[in-house]
Design a protein around this nucleic acid. Structure first.
Length: 328
DNA sequence: ACCGAAATAT
DNA sequence: CATATTTCGG
């Protein structure tokens, strides 16, 4: 059979291996009404009381609401391993579905002045973003399309647009760099420090060859492929979102000073989409989620590909460097 | 209405 | 200080 030029997923991305088996219909997940975050998961972060042990309360119904209390949580521990007592079975539980379809019109949750916390772009998420863009072609890669292709719940056009903006700048930067020999210092560098930092994120994802400079529609085909699995969303998540919750609270622990490393502690701990959309439906949201079932592999699936920690602690900026920082 | 970049907020 | 969100213009 044909092999697309898929990006070979290294380490840990098993879902790629069998994604074709369960490949869900785009229509199924297209409707981003499902709340990816299951209530149970929500509890996950609710347990902020680590080890507290007690927590025998599967009773649910606490309202996954993330309390914005400031509690430190595992902050000191470099080890952000997922708590081992996560909700073993996060079924949909009850959750006030009530309205469900009955609500009909107007049902949508206005979210009551709920401000969206802050979306954290994780390498995984970014990866998806890049993949989507790659398949769409820079040309057609517009926020809306990308957003739809990514099929990530909670992701809004604005989110993508913003990221896309940065991404483009990033690409531009690299392009220009190669050619300009030394240049650089002369008129000042429009170089924003941001670039350097963003690099680490962008570097995490392989940049599709032709991204630089030209971006044509993928070979000009009329019917774009189904893109890759839309599913990873669930797989990607898992404990990460827990971290997200943490981050959500206010965890902004970066602050390294001018000499600190950008990747300081906690930068890579960010989580994932933390949006508990609270979709009333919740019914089988599992459409695309629960497919981790008949895979033969026992433990696997989720694997954290995040590592890059590299925190030197020595005060030297450690940038992941997949690309030469362009040392000038 | 949407994209794109700047400005602003966290 | 770095990032993400929001605002402004095309």
């Amino acid at each position: 059979m044909r092999e697309e030029e898929e990006e070979e997923e290294e380490e840990g991305s098993d879902w790629f291996a069998r994604w074709e088996e369960q490949l869900p219909s785009p229509e199924e997940l297209m409707p981003l009404s499902q709340s990816l975050i299951t209530p149970g998961l929500a509890f996950a972060f609710d347990f902020d009381i680590p080890i507290a042990a007690g927590n025998p309360s599967p009773t649910v119904s606490p309202g996954y609401n993330l309390h914005r209390g400031g509690h430190a949580l595992t902050s000191a521990s470099p080890n952000h391993l997922p708590p081992l007592h996560p909700p073993p079975e996060f079924e949909s539980s009850d959750l006030n579905s009530a309205s469900g379809s009955g609500g009909a019109g107007a049902g949508d949750e206005p979210a009551r002045t709920l401000k969206r916390p802050r979306l954290v772009w994780t390498p995984q998420l970014h990866k998806r973003f890049v993949d989507a863009v790659a398949h769409l072609g820079i040309k057609n890669a517009v926020p809306k399309t990308i957003m739809q292709l990514m099929s990530v719940d909670g992701l809004t056009r604005e989110n993508v647009a913003s990221h896309l903006q940065k991404y483009r700048l990033y690409l531009r930067r690299m392009q220009g760099l190669s050619s300009s020999g030394g240049a650089g210092s002369g008129g000042g560098g429009p170089i924003s420090a941001t670039d350097a930092a963003t690099d680490q994120l962008f570097a995490s994802a392989p940049v599709p060859h032709h991204f630089l400079s030209r971006g044509g529609p993928v070979a000009g085909l009329g019917a774009p492929e189904p893109f890759l699995p839309y599913v990873p969303v669930s797989a990607l998540q898992h404990h990460q979102q827990i971290a997200a919750a943490i981050q959500q609270q206010h965890f902004h622990q970066r602050h390294l000073g001018q000499l600190g490393s950008p990747t300081g502690s906690g930068v890579f701990e960010h989580g994932f989409l933390n949006r508990s959309a609270v979709s009333p439906s919740g019914i089988h949201a599992a459409s695309g989620i629960g497919l981790v079932q008949h895979t033969a592999s026992p433990a696997t699936n989720f694997s954290d590909d995040l590592e890059t920690s590299g925190r030197g602690s020595n005060g030297e900026r450690k940038v992941l460097t997949l690309f030469p920082t362009g040392e000038h």
